[in-house]
Amino acid sequence: MTAAAASVEREAARLTDLDSAIGDADHGSNLQRGFAAVAKTLEAEPPRTPGAVLTTAGRQLISTVGGASGPLYGTLLRRTGKALGEAGSVTADELRAALRTGVDAVAQLGGAAPGDATMLDALDPAVEALGTSFDAAAEAAGRGAVATVPLQARKGRASYLGERSIGHQDPGAASSALLIRALADTADQEGAR
């Protein structure tokens, strides 16, 4: 989560620029505020398990991030954390299964599916590729985010633009790719490959 917060901090302006073309130009600033609060909360009271880290982070995002991003990212992290349970450590396979639970919860909450030009276009292929490696998941998420450019948004604020949403990368897919890359980089540093 610390790496995710740092990544969002670095990329907040780009995320906001992406959002300004098809949304309300606050995606980067909202996530920046939310992940800064997550980092502060986790530093002040470090949870004991990976699942608790994610559920705590999810609750914090819901309470500090406006718009749809707070509930969507909060749901992703909380459901993933709950699926991990109270285990003191988790395997890559356990993380993949838990992340699938979180991504499915996001799909249900937002009523979206891959191909709708949403965060799911990055998250869904990342979960599938996580079975191969963390790097493969990050690469798949990045490709998924870029693949939203030619799509017409069918969900979220961008869907109101209809065909005018075509040609713009979805900011939620871009931020999801950042988070998966932060996970992969952290796993690499920790030797979790």
Rank of each mutant, 00 (worst) to 15 (best):
Ala87Thr: 11
Arg96Leu: 05
Ala126Trp: 09
Leu72Glu: 02
Pro125Leu: 04
Ala98Met: 05
Thr132Ala: 10
Thr80Tyr: 13
Leu84Phe: 06
Asp135Pro: 03
Arg96Lys: 08
Val65Ser: 01
Pro71Arg: 01
Leu84Gly: 14
Asp93Asn: 10
Pro50Asn: 07
Leu61Ala: 01
Pro71Glu: 04
Leu77Gln: 14
Ser69Ala: 15
Gly67Gln: 05
Ser63Lys: 00
Ala113Gln: 06
Glu94Thr: 09
Gln108Trp: 04
Ala122Glu: 05
Leu84Trp: 09
Thr101Tyr: 06
Gly131Cys: 11
Ala98Asp: 10
Tyr73Ile: 08
Asp104Thr: 14
Ala122Trp: 07
Gly110Val: 05
Tyr73Glu: 10
Val106His: 13
Leu76Tyr: 03
Ala113Pro: 02
Gly81Asn: 11
Gly81Glu: 11
Ala113Phe: 04
Arg78Lys: 15
Lys82Arg: 15
Thr55Pro: 09
Gly111Ser: 04
Ala126Arg: 07
Thr75Asn: 08
Ala113Met: 05
Leu120Ser: 03
Gly102Glu: 11
Asp121Asn: 10
Asp116Gly: 02
Ala92Thr: 12
Gly115Lys: 12
Glu94Arg: 08
Glu128Asn: 09
Leu120Ile: 03
Pro125Gln: 07
Gly51Met: 13
Ala105Gly: 05
Leu84His: 09
Asp135Thr: 13
Val65Arg: 01
Pro114Asp: 02
Asp121Ser: 08
Gly88Gln: 09
Ile62Gly: 14
Asp104Gln: 13
Leu99Thr: 15
Ser63Asp: 01
Ser133Gln: 07
Leu61Lys: 00
Asp93Ser: 12
Asp104Pro: 09
